[in-house]
Amino acid sequence: MLQIIKLTVNGKPCEIAVDRRWSLAEALRQALGLTSVKKGCEVGECGACTVLVDGKAVDSCLYLALWAEGKSVVTVEGLKSGDNDLHPIQKAFIEECAVQCGFCTPGLIMSAVEIVGEGRVYSRDELRKLLSGHLCRCTGYENILNAVERAVREING
């Protein structure tokens, strides 16, 4: 059964019809075409579907679409500024070679946005812990850590 929910997605207010059983990941992909929200396991193990809900990083596969009523959701599609400039975290991911197959990338970037949003600098070990909910099989995390470390330093350092 479909139900209408109102929420803000990537800064724009929207009203979408969702199946009550849908996860937020399904709603973002199917109702809004936000395909950066990747499905890697659909049970909260891999972190590929991570989006921000009111500024907090959540596994959108474990978050019912209905719960997003009235909330603000951000995906990587919403990170570019008005003049199409990339977010510093996106730039850092490119420049630090933190992208390989790219499937875990959007989710990791959203967690990095949350981390950067805390307004402080983190040690590498702290970053390892903060990113440990994301599985990546291509990179060994080395360049992802480098990218997030760099973005944190540039923005909050």
């Binding site: 936000l34 570019k80 990339l86 996106q90 490119i94 992208v99 790219g102 499937f103 990338t105």
Partner: peptide, 25 residues
């Protein structure tokens, strides 16, 4: 030369399409 990946921009912006992203609804 360590040029940046040609697909990196699409992969950090969500523009890169994978199989499930292309399937008709």
């Amino acid at each position: 030369k360590s040029v940046p990946r040609v697909d990196a921009r699409d992969k950090v912006t969500g523009a890169a399409k994978y199989t499930a992203d292309l399937c008709p609804a």
